Simulated scan of single mutants.
Amino acid sequence: MAKPVLRIVIGSTRPGRIGPSVATWIAERAREHGGFDVQVTDLAELNLPLYDEPNHPRLRQYVNQHTKDWSALAGASDAFIFVTPEYNHGFNAALKNAIDYLYHEWHHKAAGIVSYGGVSAGTRATQMLKQVLTALKVMPVPEAVNIPFVFQHLDEDKRFKSTELIDASAVAMLDELQRWTESLATLRAKNK
């Protein structure tokens, strides 16, 4: 039996970002976990313009190839992990834009959140993101990975170096994400 597809979405798109480093780390933890077929999507590479579809996404009448490509990636996913920085007490605009492009593709899927920042560890971004996700019938699992003072966790090559506590929070999130992904499978099947 095929494993459910876990799509890790790198939310940051700015030059000099550290999102890919954090995403590489959580992708490695997810592969070690073994419950998912892990795939990574970098919004900087996806390069979605500011929402430019003429029709509401609930209609699935996409006209642009970039939207069709994004729809196929999200639609083929069974669960998500959003890797997000915190910008001004919220999550960043590129991630919100990518979420707003789609509608049905999100339904009945579970999501984990890995946030990073300074003293707040991205927790305010996490709380805002959860509100948006629940409006799209996504189940954000309560367990999350919040990384405080993220720059202190980077080596000289900007690779993310975890701690025992951060690793433990990743395992807890992945365990719960797997439970919810399995539990929502029937609803996802009805949505196809």
Rank of each mutant, 00 (worst) to 15 (best):
A2P: 11
A2Q: 12
K3Q: 14
P4A: 08
L6V: 03
R7V: 02
I8D: 04
I8F: 01
V9G: 02
V9L: 04
I10C: 08
G11V: 00
S12W: 00
P15M: 02
G16F: 06
R17L: 05
R17Y: 02
I18A: 05
I18W: 07
G19H: 02
S21K: 00
S21F: 00
T24C: 09
I26P: 02
I26W: 07
A27R: 09
R29H: 02
A30I: 01
R31A: 12
R31N: 04
G34Q: 03
D37N: 12
Q39W: 10
Q39N: 13
Q39V: 14
V40H: 03
V40F: 05
T41D: 14
L43A: 11
L43V: 04
L46M: 15
L50C: 04
Y51C: 07
D52A: 14
D52L: 03
E53C: 09
E53I: 07
Q61I: 11
Y62R: 13
Y62G: 08
N64L: 13
Q65E: 15
Q65N: 14
K68C: 02
K68G: 01
L73I: 15
G75R: 07
A76H: 13
S77I: 07
D78V: 08
A79M: 05
P85N: 01
E86Y: 09
Y87W: 15
G90R: 13
F91R: 04
F91Q: 03
F91H: 13
A93H: 12
A94V: 09
L95D: 01
K96E: 12
A98V: 10
A98K: 10
Y101H: 10
L102M: 09
L102F: 09
H104M: 08
E105S: 09
H107D: 12
K109M: 09
K109T: 10
G112W: 00
I113N: 10
S115P: 02
S120V: 15
G122C: 11
T123C: 11
A125Q: 06
T126G: 02
L129I: 02
K130D: 03
L133D: 00
M139T: 14
P142W: 06
E143G: 07
N146Q: 11
P148W: 06
H153Y: 11
D157I: 00
R159S: 07
F160Y: 12
S162Y: 08
I166F: 03
A170R: 05
M173N: 01
D175R: 14
E176V: 06
E176I: 00
Q178D: 13
R179D: 12
S183F: 10
L184Y: 03
A185V: 02
R188F: 01
A189K: 14
K190S: 12
